[in-house]
Amino acid sequence: MLSKRIIACLDVRAGKLAKSVRFVDTKDIGDPVAKAREYYEQGLDELVLYDITASSEGRGILLEVVARVAAQVFIPFSVGGGLRTVEDCRRVLLAGAEKVNVNTAAVQRPDLIAEAARAFGSQAVVLSMDVRRVPASAAIPSGYEIVTHGGRTPTGLDALAWARRGEALGSGEIVVNSIDADGTKQGYEIGLTRAVAEAVSIPVIASGGGGTPEHLYAALTEGKADAALVASMLHYGEYTVGEIKAYLAKRGLKVRRTT
C-alpha cells in the first residue's frame, strides 16, 4: 500500500532570493535550498518549488535554485510558476526536477498539458488548480470555480470539469488549492478536495489551509487526498515533518518514517 505523502511548498521569489544570495550557505529562512535540505533531512516525501515572480530575469535564478536543490535533495520534486511552453518545462526538468506544475498557462491553453505529457510522460505533469467557492450555477454546477492570478481572475470553469479535462489531457496528478482556505491555517477545504478526488482517478494533492497535523489527517482521510501540501506550518518552525508524520502514524495512516 502506498504511503500518504507530505509535500512541502517553497516559494522562490527570484528578486528577493537574488538579494539573499550571500546567505546561500547559511540556514537563513529566505534561502529555499537550505530549507529544502532541512526538510529532506526531517523525512519529507516530496518538494514543490514555486517561482512566484516568474519574470524573465528570475527564470535564470530559478534554474540555478533547481540545480542546487537537485544536488542535495534526493526525493522527487516539482517546479511551478510561469511555465508556459514545453521548452519552459524541459528546462526545469533538465535542471533536475522530476515534475512540472502547470496552472494559469494550462487554463489559457489546455493543450500545454497534452504537449508536456507527450514530451515527458504523464507522471511528470502536475495540474495545479486554484479554486474559489461560488454559488452553484448552470456553468459551475459544483459551486467551485477555477480562478487564476492568485484568485483575482475568475475563469468561468467548473473545478470538477477542469479536473476531469486535465486528467483526460494527460496530467498525472492534481493539486487542489483552495483560495478560500489558503493562508487561514483553519484546515484544508475537505468538501472540495473530496469532490475532486472522486471525480478523477489520478492522485490528488490537498493544498491551502493546513495549520495542524489534524488538518492533514482530515484531508488524507475524509478528503480522500493522496498527499497534502504544507508550507507555513514548516516554514515558521511550528512543526517538523517528523512530528506531522508521527501524528498521522498514530492515527493509523501509512506514512514513510525515516527514523
Binding site: 500500500m1 502506498l2 505523502r5 516525501d45 504523464s122 498525472g172 482517478s201 492522485p203 493522496d226
Partner: peptide
C-alpha cells in the same frame, strides 16, 4: 480494486 491508481506512484514498503 478501482481505488488502486495506476501508475503506482509514491512511496511504498
Amino acid at each position: 480494486d478501482p481505488a488502486l491508481k495506476i501508475p503506482h506512484m509514491g512511496w511504498n514498503a
